[in-house]
């Protein structure tokens, strides 16, 4: 590790931040802004909330930085804060709000899940792709915070099980089982939304259209 290596540069920036250098903090976080924002985006409802959460996480990180001793890499440490801010916000919101995404169904293990409304399908392939993407996004958003976090970290951010364990603050076994359950749920949700066979959607839609015509 030479004096110009990224790790060293980061360690120096951390030191400068710890002595109150705001400019150094700006330099330190710049490479992570996109990842942090994207994690917040997948963990929140919309772009506006994502912006707020990401901002809150950075402020928390700045205030907590004097306590950062380099046990984990800065990136892992930062993402742990982001994950905490996002899951906290998500839990709070889930308690307050009656989600209107779809009707609630109880799954086999007793947890209440959302059954997604008809994913829909457009006339063109492009629209179909977009609809599919929206359906996947909605399905991810309907997962409880802990499940959502592991799925986002693994499948969108591509972190290893070890890294996810460190960010989420749980052991690897928990990561594996949460990931499995989260993916299985997504599969159930998306299958119910008939995403895999878009043609079925036309079939189910046809009678209602016909009904309106009569």
């Amino acid at each position: 590790m030479g004096p110009q290596s990224p790790e060293n540069r980061e360690a120096l920036l951390v030191q400068r931040c710890q002595s109150g250098d705001l400019e150094a903090f700006g330099e330190l976080i710049a490479p992570y802004e996109k990842k942090v924002y994207n994690l917040a985006y997948r963990m929140s409802r919309d772009a506006e909330e994502a912006k707020d959460l990401a901002q809150e996480a950075f402020v928390k990180a700045y205030l907590a930085l004097p306590g950062f001793r380099g046990e984990a890499s800065f990136a892992t440490w930062l993402f742990r804060i982001v994950a905490n801010v996002c899951t906290d916000a998500l839990r709070k919101r889930r308690q307050q709000e009656v989600v209107s995404l779809g009707r609630q169904v109880e799954t086999s293990d007793g947890e209440v899940m959302l059954e997604l409304p008809d994913a829909g399908a457009g006339p063109s392939d492009v629209l179909e792709d977009l609809e599919r993407q929206h359906a996947v996004e909605r399905a991810v958003r309907s997962l409880p915070a802990e499940f959502r976090l592991v799925v986002v970290l693994r499948d969108i951010h591509g972190y290893s099980y070890e890294e996810i364990a460190s960010i989420a603050g749980v052991n690897i076994g928990t990561v594996k089982s949460r990931l499995n359950r989260a993916r299985q749920r997504l599969r159930e949700l998306l299958q119910d939304g008939e995403l895999f066979e878009p043609h079925n959607v036309y079939k189910t839609r046809a009678p209602s259209k016909g009904g309106a015509g009569r």
Binding site: G26, A30, Y37, A47, A54, Q55, R132, Q133, V136
Partner: peptide, 22 residues
């Protein structure tokens, strides 16, 4: 499908916003 979700661009002025808040 989850892996193919697109990456969102950071909103304009986000860095400035964060630094002001910090």
């Amino acid at each position: 499908l989850v892996r193919s979700l697109p990456e969102k661009p950071v909103p304009d002025g986000f860095h400035q916003l964060v630094m002001t808040a910090v």
